[in-house]
Simulated scan of single mutants.
Amino acid sequence: MMMKPRTFILLASLLGAKCILAESTLPEYMIGEYEYVSGDNYDKFLSAIGIGLFQRTLLAATSPKQTIRQVGDEIEIIVDIGIGGRIAQSNFKLGSPYVETTLKGDKIPTIATLEENKLKKVKKPDNGLEVEEVREFLDNGNTMNLYLSVIGKPEADALRVFKKKN
């Protein structure tokens, strides 16, 4: 007899096993356009990942917009930094490794997962730094907190707060 996946998860939970259900669809409240409101420690984060002073100064002065979309099981995040029409675009499927291209053209192995109200991306560039991007959705998706961290460097943790555009 073949056990259905949800039955297995329930059984595993009853036995005390911790399971994360691999979802392929974002909740509707995560989809939309978000505008930058405030932030903390962004300059230290950018410095920790190797961004030079001139670029850090420019990036810190921007009010980026983020757009999150999903078509089928492919998710797209567009970050418009508002400097000369420059955008960062990321297309991926949850739980599937992919290569993300930075604004500088670097190609970084990345994986994205959905954990409750958080969309989490873990990036492992060749320089040995592991970078984590966690988008936490609060207030039914009207607020998105973007936590940026370099694993092993807590002094570089940054927070960027965004509000959903209505």
Results as ranks from 00 to 15, higher is better:
Asp40Tyr: 11
Ile51Ala: 10
Leu59Lys: 01
Pro27Ser: 12
Ser47Lys: 09
Asp40Asn: 15
Arg86Lys: 14
Glu76Arg: 09
Phe54Lys: 09
Pro64Asp: 11
Tyr34Gly: 08
Ala17Phe: 14
Thr67Met: 09
Leu21Ser: 12
Asp43Val: 08
Ile75Val: 06
Gln70Gly: 12
Glu35Ala: 10
Gly32Ser: 04
Ser24Val: 09
Gly84His: 08
Glu76Asp: 03
Ala60Trp: 00
Tyr29Leu: 07
Gln70Tyr: 08
Ile75His: 02
Asp40Val: 04
Asp73Lys: 04
Val71Glu: 15
Gly16Ile: 01
Gln70Ser: 12
Ile68Phe: 05
Lys65His: 09
Pro27Phe: 00
Tyr42Asp: 15
Ile31Asp: 09
Asp80Leu: 01
Tyr34Asp: 10
Gly50Asn: 05
Ala48Ile: 05
Arg69Gln: 13
Val71Asp: 15
Tyr29Thr: 14
Tyr36Ser: 10
Gln55Arg: 09
Ala48Arg: 06
Asp40Leu: 05
Ala17Gln: 15
Phe45Arg: 01
Leu26Gln: 08
Gln66Asn: 15
Ile83Met: 11
Gln66Met: 15
Gly72Arg: 00
Ile77Gln: 05
Gly32Ile: 01
Gly39Pro: 07
Val37Arg: 11
Thr67Asp: 09
Ile78His: 02
Leu21Asn: 10
Asn41Arg: 06
Cys19Asp: 03
Leu26Asp: 08
Gly52Trp: 12
Arg86Val: 13
Ala60Leu: 00
Leu59Met: 09
Ser63Gln: 12
Glu28Gly: 10
Ser24Trp: 00
Gly32Cys: 05
Ala60Cys: 11
Ile51Gln: 05
Glu33Ala: 12
Ser24Lys: 02
Lys65Glu: 09
Phe54Ala: 11
Asp43Leu: 03
Tyr34Ser: 07
Asp40Ile: 01
Val37Gly: 03
Glu76Val: 06
Leu21Gly: 10
Ile87Gln: 13
Tyr42Val: 15
Glu23His: 11
Asp40Cys: 07
Thr67Gln: 12
Pro27Ile: 02
Ala61Arg: 04
Ala17Asn: 13
Ser63Val: 02
Phe54Met: 12
Gly82Ile: 00
Asp40Ser: 13
Thr62Cys: 03
Gly50Gln: 05
Met30Gln: 13
Asn41Tyr: 04
Glu33Phe: 00
Asp73Leu: 03
Leu53Gln: 05
Gly32Ala: 04
Met30Lys: 08
Asp80Tyr: 01
Gly84Val: 06
Leu26Pro: 07
Ala60Pro: 02
Gly52Ala: 15
Gly16Arg: 05
Arg86Phe: 10
Ile49Lys: 12
Glu35Ile: 02
Tyr42Trp: 12
Val71Gly: 11
Ser38Gln: 12
Gln55Leu: 14
Gly84Ser: 12
Glu28Met: 00
Cys19Pro: 07
Lys44Gln: 14
Ile81Asn: 11
Ala48Tyr: 03
Glu74Met: 06
Leu46Val: 04
Asp80Arg: 04
Phe54Pro: 02
Glu28Ile: 02
Ile77Tyr: 02
Pro27His: 08
Gly72Leu: 05
Thr25Phe: 08
Ser47Phe: 03
Ala61Cys: 03
Arg86Met: 13
Val71Tyr: 08
